[in-house]
């Protein structure tokens, strides 16, 4: 043992830890080993691939904005207030996190679909959500919102309310406290929550294919394109998979960076 610092860990722990690391890394290496590098660029720059990547980036960005707009107030309410049934409500709004995405897709279908709870009324006003890019954004927002809420609520609780109280006793109005004290303090947590939501939106597949459909440039995001390409051109599917892995790695790097600032 060369390590200068005492880790306090028994030696055997490293064996399952290494096995776990290999378990996660091996499939990624296997994926990279399968990439046809000579054709890689042409595979990922084909018309359908570029359309799918662009659609994925655009919809995931819009979904992230929607998550921030809806999720920040949710996290603040959950972290700073107490009301009856709060813990039940928290569990319920976090449900999309553990729900199989296809179940989310079916639920969205019966909400925003043509014969759905809201869809019927939207149809009357001339709004049709099914098969549109809006449906993709709704599906992505539905599955990623809890990630932002959980992440931000945790940060809010850790930050505590001392500064809020001080600001309030100095005469700041609630909106000013929220805007000038509470949120700036948790900005790194908000950033990492938003990046997590973005990553989840980017990878969304099940709810999208169930609810939004699949049409190039309109609803066929990168994961759907990979799923379809697998049928005819496994090389293209592998190349596009690697693109998603690279984006995911960049996202993890960003999260670590934003956490590091704290």
């Amino acid at each position: 043992m060369r390590s200068s610092q005492y880790s306090g860990l028994p030696a055997w722990v490293y064996v399952p830890a290494a096995a776990g690391a290999a378990f996660v890394l091996l499939p990624l290496l296997a994926l990279m080993a399968r990439v046809d590098w000579s054709q890689f660029i042409s595979l990922i720059t084909s018309e359908s691939s570029v359309a799918a990547l662009r659609l994925s980036l655009v919809t995931a960005s819009i979904s992230t904005v929607a998550c921030v707009v809806l999720g920040v107030p949710m996290a603040v309410v959950l972290a700073r207030t107490r009301f009856a049934g709060q813990s039940v409500l928290r569990s319920l709004v976090l449900l999309p996190m553990v729900l199989p995405p296809v179940v989310g897709g079916i639920a969205l279908l019966y909400t925003f679909g043509r014969r759905g709870l809201l869809g019927e009324h939207l149809e009357v006003v001339g709004l049709q959500i099914a098969f549109s890019t809006v449906a993709v954004v709704i599906a992505q927002t539905f599955v990623s919102l809890p990630f932002l809420v959980v992440s931000l609520e945790g940060t809010l609780r850790t930050a505590g309310r001392r500064y809020d109280i001080v600001a309030a006793t100095l005469g700041a109005k609630p909106t000013t406290v929220l805007r000038r004290v509470t949120l700036p303090l948790v900005l790194p947590g908000l950033a990492s929550g938003a990046i997590l939501a973005f990553a989840r939106a980017l990878g969304e597949f099940g709810a999208t294919i169930t609810f939004a459909g699949s049409l190039q440039g309109v609803t066929r995001t990168l994961p759907l394109e990979i799923y379809l390409q697998r049928e005819v051109d496994p090389d293209a599917a592998v190349a596009l998979s690697l693109v998603l892995v690279v984006v995911a790695v960049l996202v993890i790097g960003l999260v670590r960076g934003s956490r590091g600032q704290m």
Partner: peptide, 21 residues
């Protein structure tokens, strides 16, 4: 000019039975 090109025939059927298409 389809609204969607599904990757499985069962998905096409589901879109019709659910009334979306």
């Amino acid at each position: 000019s389809p609204a969607s090109e599904e990757s499985a025939v069962t998905d096409v059927l589901a879109k019709v039975t659910s009334g979306e298409a």
